[in-house]
């Protein structure tokens, strides 16, 4: 599972990969431009790395942007301690393989105050273990720019976010006071303590991400591919039943089925979907006929209407 050799490398006689189609090429060019601009303008950039498919694409683009040089900034993984085990194994293999600098941060309050997805509501858990943890890590590193893999098509409040999203010294986002962004000219001027979140994937859609992963042969966590896996049903979600910390409630039965994940996060808060899509072709085919959005499996977005905007104002990535 930590084997991240790509399909092309597994097949030494494979023909060279064809050039990207103009659509993906345009998105790639835009993202590389943003990476280079931020790396040149800011003193201490960092890349937020969540191990998911968008992060995998983001990392691939960073490697392309700075080639033949090394990626000139560290990766920051804000861990909660509740990620899927396969995600952590994948992360460590990627870091080693691509010679990256990884910083991992877990909010110490998690262990000290026993804050878990089971003992808290998902809103409070996310606030402490993700939003607060991110603020801690960004403050500790004194980072003035943080790359993120957010896309504008993900959620309504993201649709209005800039590519350079300005944050106050306490990491707040003020949606009413964003800098106008014209052409591909980005304003990176900030005062001490202020920072910018930069989103190179702003104009990508979920299908673009998958098609790019396929075209560029980018390794991703195997949980995205359908396989027979154990799960329990809880609050209408299929929760992976592999981690021993998952305590089964009285009426829950451990089941098995062919499932996969459309997004990855903390395993107790991330629902699987029933799917037999075991290859990239099958995932893309499934997506093009999909009738639900990818965030549907995420408990944290459904807590309250406008919940993403609330979290973002408070500094959530």
């Amino acid at each position: 599972m930590s084997d991240i050799r790509t399909e092309a490398e597994a097949k030494p006689n494979a023909t060279p990969k064809p050039p990207l189609d103009p659509h993906l090429k345009a998105l790639e060019n835009e993202a590389i431009h943003i990476f280079r601009e931020v790396a040149a303008e800011f003193e201490r950039p960092v890349m937020l790395y969540s191990i998911g498919k968008d992060s995998s694409v983001l990392l691939h683009l960073a490697r392309k942007a700075f080639y033949p040089g090394r990626v000139p900034f560290p990766l920051l993984h804000v861990n909660t301690g509740w990620k899927f085990a396969e995600m952590i194994a994948f992360r460590d293999a990627v870091v080693k393989r691509y010679d990256l600098d990884l910083i991992e941060h877990i909010n110490p309050r998690g262990a000290a105050e026993n804050i878990t997805p089971f003992t808290q509501g998902s809103a409070r858990y996310t606030d402490i273990m993700k939003t607060e943890a991110l603020r801690q890590a960004l403050d500790a590193g004194k980072y003035d720019a943080a790359f993120g893999g957010a896309r504008r098509d993900e959620e309504a409040s993201r649709a209005k976010e800039r590519i350079y999203s300005f944050r106050t010294p306490d990491h707040r986002w003020d949606p009413r006071n964003q800098r106008p962004e014209l052409w591909n000219i980005y304003n990176g001027m900030i005062r001490a303590g202020e920072s910018v979140r930069a989103f190179p994937l702003s104009n990508w859609t979920e299908v673009d991400i998958w098609r790019y992963i396929q075209a560029e042969d980018i390794p991703i966590v195997p949980l995205y591919f359908a396989k027979k896996r154990p799960f329990v049903e809880r609050d209408g979600m299929m929760i992976l039943a592999e981690d021993p910390r998952l305590e089964r409630l009285p009426d829950e039965v451990r089941q098995e089925g062919v499932i996969r994940f459309r997004t990855l996060g903390c395993f107790p808060l991330t629902g699987a979907i029933r799917s037999s899509a075991a290859t990239l072709d099958e995932i893309i085919a499934e997506l093009e006929t999909a009738t639900v959005s990818e965030r549907q499996g995420r408990a944290i977005d459904r807590d309250q209407s406008g919940s993403m905007e609330k979290k973002k104002r408070e500094g959530y990535f």
Partner: peptide
């Protein structure tokens, strides 16, 4: 569907540029 920001929703106006795909 389009008015992504709560403040706008409450006032019933769109105040900024939003991108759709």
């Amino acid at each position: 569907l389009l008015d992504g920001l709560q403040a706008e929703r409450e006032q019933g106006i769109t105040i900024d540029v939003a991108y759709r795909y």
